[in-house]
Simulated scan of single mutants.
Amino acid sequence: MRTSDQLGEPGFRSLYRRLLSTAPGAASPRGALDTLTPDRVLAAVREVRSGRTVSLASPVNTVAAPDDPRPAEHRLTAPQGGVPAPGGGLEFARDRFAMDVHGDVNTHLDALCHVLYDDTVHGGLPAADALTPEGARTLSADLVHDGVVGRAVLLDIPGLHGRPWLEPGTSVTAEDLEAAEARQGVRTGPGDLLLVRVGHRRRREELGPWDASVARAGLDPAALEFLAERRVAVLGGDGNNDTAPSPVRGVDFPVHVLAVHAMGLHLLDYLRLEEVLPVCVAQGRWSFLCVIAPLRLPAATGAPVNPIAVL
């Protein structure tokens, strides 16, 4: 684990170029999803042992907090005032929901158009060609409208270090990922959905919310080479995958730049892994079938998701 600046912007750009040349999804319009072949989906189905299902999403937050000043809005629109009309008969309860897709609390998927770097999006496409005031023309969340189904591998980094969570500002290294694999008896492979637990959600639930935009645990940027070597399809975490303060001077979200922009990895931010964790411990296994079904938002830069682990 690391807790201080490790990389300047020139070193970061060198890492970016290496990933562009080595990551399997760097040159593909579908990004790293190309590694999730039908054969690998069938193999993932064979991961199911007990048939138990567990949500990997957090409840949608509707209360303003230091990490969510603009929470989701939910209100009942019928019956009027929430009170059924007198006299009985047929009525329908109806409601309306609105939210910012990207933020520091709610579970969501980042589309490949989400990260702009050097005026481009994934694949080097000019951002001005990809995005309009009406939404994304390409690389939107609709790219995964058929869902993502595959083998997920959960690596518990606080468990590796005997802690309930990693403190904000801590970065998870490739050595941490390899050590967690060895401890848990699992290996991440091609087409896998890699889920990295830093304990963000548990810390929030036990200590209360804080401004996660300025302080959170995440991945060290150099750890993305581990993901490229293992040819993973999706990266998810119970934070937003990036450390704050940033370990790269001059780049605030280096993991997002490397993962989404360079490697073509869809990111799952702010998962809730506290329910599946004890199931993995009890069953003595850290891989499982995972089903991700984003809402069909054709021009969106991301989507709320409720990933389901099937063990």
Score class of each variant (00 low, 15 high):
residue 300 A to C: 03
residue 82 G to T: 02
residue 179 A to M: 07
residue 21 S to M: 10
residue 299 A to Q: 11
residue 114 H to A: 15
residue 253 F to W: 09
residue 185 G to L: 07
residue 153 V to Q: 05
residue 268 L to C: 00
residue 310 V to P: 08
residue 233 A to Y: 15
residue 96 R to V: 12
residue 35 T to K: 09
residue 24 P to R: 04
residue 215 A to H: 08
residue 188 T to P: 05
residue 259 A to Y: 09
residue 24 P to W: 13
residue 141 A to E: 01
residue 245 P to S: 10
residue 282 A to G: 13
residue 19 L to A: 08
residue 75 R to P: 08
residue 38 P to I: 10
residue 296 R to I: 08
residue 286 W to R: 02
residue 34 D to Y: 03
residue 202 R to Q: 06
residue 117 Y to P: 04
residue 60 V to L: 09
residue 140 S to F: 10
residue 42 L to K: 01
residue 59 P to N: 04
residue 148 V to C: 02
residue 157 I to Q: 10
residue 34 D to S: 11
residue 4 S to P: 03
residue 203 R to Y: 03
residue 94 R to V: 14
residue 23 A to E: 13
residue 222 A to C: 07
residue 142 D to L: 10
residue 22 T to G: 11
residue 33 L to F: 15
residue 158 P to C: 12
residue 270 Y to R: 09
residue 35 T to H: 06
residue 144 V to T: 15
residue 143 L to G: 08
residue 251 V to S: 07
residue 117 Y to L: 12
residue 265 L to S: 03
residue 220 D to H: 15
residue 29 P to E: 04
residue 177 L to S: 00
residue 207 L to S: 05
residue 59 P to K: 08
residue 11 G to C: 01
residue 69 P to F: 05
residue 12 F to P: 04
residue 9 E to H: 12
residue 72 A to E: 08
residue 234 V to I: 15
residue 166 L to P: 07
residue 225 E to K: 03
residue 173 T to V: 06
residue 255 V to W: 09
residue 176 D to S: 09
residue 100 D to M: 12
residue 113 C to L: 02
residue 301 T to D: 13
residue 89 G to P: 11
residue 75 R to V: 13
residue 286 W to Y: 15
residue 199 G to Q: 01
residue 149 V to G: 05
residue 105 V to L: 10
residue 298 P to S: 03
residue 307 P to R: 00
residue 120 T to W: 11
residue 102 H to M: 07
residue 60 V to C: 02
residue 84 P to G: 07
residue 102 H to Y: 06
residue 33 L to T: 14
residue 20 L to E: 11
residue 167 E to H: 03
residue 280 C to G: 03
residue 271 L to S: 12
residue 205 E to A: 09
residue 43 A to Y: 05
residue 169 G to Q: 15
residue 230 R to Y: 12
residue 268 L to R: 00
residue 176 D to L: 00
residue 209 P to W: 03
residue 256 H to R: 12
residue 256 H to N: 15
residue 155 L to S: 00
residue 162 G to N: 07
residue 144 V to Q: 03
residue 85 A to K: 11
residue 225 E to G: 11
residue 19 L to Q: 14
residue 271 L to M: 13
residue 115 V to S: 05
residue 175 E to N: 09
residue 143 L to T: 14
residue 192 D to G: 01
residue 233 A to P: 13
residue 33 L to H: 10
residue 241 N to D: 04
residue 156 D to P: 14
residue 71 P to I: 01
residue 210 W to L: 02
residue 39 D to Q: 13
residue 230 R to W: 05
residue 179 A to S: 15
residue 70 R to C: 11
residue 153 V to P: 04
residue 127 A to M: 02
residue 15 L to E: 07
residue 13 R to C: 10
residue 286 W to A: 04
residue 15 L to C: 02
residue 236 G to H: 00
residue 279 V to D: 09
residue 233 A to K: 10
residue 35 T to D: 11
residue 155 L to P: 06
residue 203 R to P: 05
residue 288 F to V: 00
residue 277 L to S: 13
residue 224 L to V: 02
residue 29 P to G: 05
residue 243 T to S: 01
residue 260 V to R: 08
residue 298 P to F: 12
residue 227 L to Y: 14
residue 82 G to W: 06
residue 62 T to I: 11
residue 205 E to L: 02
residue 150 G to C: 12
residue 140 S to W: 08
residue 217 A to I: 12
residue 261 H to L: 04
residue 108 H to V: 02
residue 79 P to Q: 03
residue 165 W to N: 00
residue 75 R to L: 09
residue 243 T to I: 04
residue 166 L to T: 02
residue 13 R to H: 07
residue 223 A to S: 15
residue 254 P to T: 14
residue 29 P to H: 04
residue 201 R to V: 05
